[in-house]
Structures are given as structure tokens and as C-alpha cells.
Amino acid sequence: MTIEVKNIVKKFGSFAALDNVDLKVGKGELLALLGPSGSGKTTLLRIIAGLDWPDAGEVTIDGEDALGHGASERHVGFVFQHYALFRHMTVFENVAFGLRVQPRAVRKDEATIRARVKELLDLVQLDWLANRYPSQLSGGQRQRIALARALAIEPRILLLDEPFGALDAKVRKELRQWLRSLHSEIHVTSIFVTHDQEEALEVANRVVVMDKGRIEQIGTPGDVYDNPATAFVHGFIGESIVLPVEVAGGSVRLGGQPLNITADGAAPGASKLFVRRHDMQIGPAGTGSLEGAVRHVRSFGPIQRAEIALSGGEGKTVIEIDAPRDRELQAGEIIGLQPRRYRIFAAQD
């Protein structure tokens, strides 16, 4: 099922939670809404579900206007960050809820409901918990039950709000892989909200990066990582080295010193140079366009992470780089640095 969101505006008082947001989600996609807290991602999800209403704009699900219908008529599965399981019902009754509240004309008979619930509990591999109450389950189990409950109504789309936000790191990792394999099994169009870039890049087919109520970039995980469209995306996704530079006449200057890189068509004026930690090539002193003293080295696995105080600019600029271990760095050593891949964005303030 496809979802289309057009020109959505939502204000809380004078604060614009969503500022003219457009988004298209294709059939069977697994889309991540990624952004820091307060970026409007959860609000957007709730508007699609019908739990919140926009001040302006359109939402269509499968070409059909959704804003004319309340949440109970949209046939949308919603999974809450804190699960929102019905605490007075058993796991079985929680999953059966959506089937039991259907209008009498379409409601299935008890045997069909039981079979369907059994099937869903099997799907989330928790059939042995059917008679427990939510308070007796672990966080990961609760989240899987919440998912089974949302799937019970055979939703047209599945919306997940920070589905793994309240879980510890290990369970989170397991559930991520599990969600991805579940999605390839049932193939329902899904959107999930997360502030965890690793989660978004690992699970989703496409990532929507949001900030301050606007969409900054939409692309595949590889796209948003390798070709960030804005300074915000570059800084938010992956670790970046950010240096304040000046662009003038096609050359890039750091603290007045020209760097041996091209401006790549960046507009003249105060700018920011973004380099990934592992895209900073190291060499002997005197080579490369930057020079710095190694202050501290930590080695783990295939890389060494070095803290480097750049020469010039009063030695106050300290960057962290990731270098391969073919050449072990020593603390105190002076090295040359050259950005292999980089992006220049205009400084915003």
C-alpha cells in the first residue's frame, strides 16, 4: 500500500513541529524516519496513523484521503515506543483485541479468532506466553507482542514509533534483524521512527532524515551516508570532522592558510568542511594540506583512533581520525593529513 503526505503543517502553539512536509512511501517499503528529538518525526507518524491532526496538508493512503477518517477506520497498525499493551488482559487477549472489536457483521467466529491469534503468536515466536500478563514479560517480548497485536487486524500499513527505544543494546540488535526478516516475510508497507542512525541505516530500505520539522534528505542508507545533502545530515549520520573554512576564488582556506583541495563549486564565504574520520589520509610531516601532532592513540580491531591537534590556528583545533593499522602512530609524532573525500557546506550561522 502506498502512502502520500503533501504539504503537512503542524504547529504546537508557536512551535512548528512539521513545516511543509512532503513524503511518498511506495508499496512494501520499509522506511525509516530519522532525526533528533523534536525533529517532528513522531508527530508525522501519528498524523499518518490518525492519532494527531495536521493544521494543513493532505494524507492519502492508497490514493484515498485519510484525513477524513479517524484512526479506528484507517486500518493502520501502530506500535508504540512503550508498547501500550493492555495491562489487564493476557497476551492472547491483547493480540485478539483488534479482532474482537470488529463490527458484528464482519467479526470472525471464536474459533477463527483463536486460530489467527495462535498464528500471530507463532509468527513472533512467543506462543508459549499466551496466558501471561504484560507485566510478566521482558521488554523485548512486550514489543514483539505489541507488533503481533498490530498485525492482527491485517493493517494496510504498519507504523512503529521508536520500536526499540526502550530496550537495552543487545535485545535491540536482535530485534532489528528480526524486524527486517519479518518485513521481508510479510511485506507490509512500514514506517518506523528512530533517533538511532545505526538502526535506520541497518534496517530500512530508505531513510528520511528530518530536522526541525523539515525533511533534510530522502535516500537509501548508502546515499544518505555517502552523499549527505546538507551539513545537518553530514553531521547527524556517521562521525564527521568539521572544520571552519573560508571559500574564496575556488580555493579553500583554514585559518588563512590555503588547503590543497578544490572548492567543488561551493559558494564563496564562511563555510564548513566535513570529512569522515576514515577519509582523512595520513602521511609523513610536510605531506598533505594539514599538519598536526598526535596526542593520543587507541587501537582496536582493524583501526587506530587518533586524537590530533592541528598545527596553526593556535593549536586549539583537535580532531579525531580513524586510520588503518598498517602504519602505527605514536603519541607526539607530527603527521601530515589530506582529506580523501570531503564536502563543503555554507556555514549557517
Binding site: S72, E73, F97, Q102
Partner: peptide, 20 residues
């Protein structure tokens, strides 16, 4: 949240009140 969950599962206002 539990009420929102019930509504998103298709429950009417009255069903939500009496069941949740």
C-alpha cells in the same frame, strides 16, 4: 497510550472505554 492503541486497532469510543 492504551486508549490510542485500542482506537488504532479499530475500537470505537465506547468499546475503548468499556474494554480498556
Amino acid at each position: 497510550q492504551e486508549e490510542e492503541a485500542a482506537i488504532s486497532l479499530g475500537a470505537s469510543g465506547l468499546q475503548t472505554f468499556f474494554r480498556v
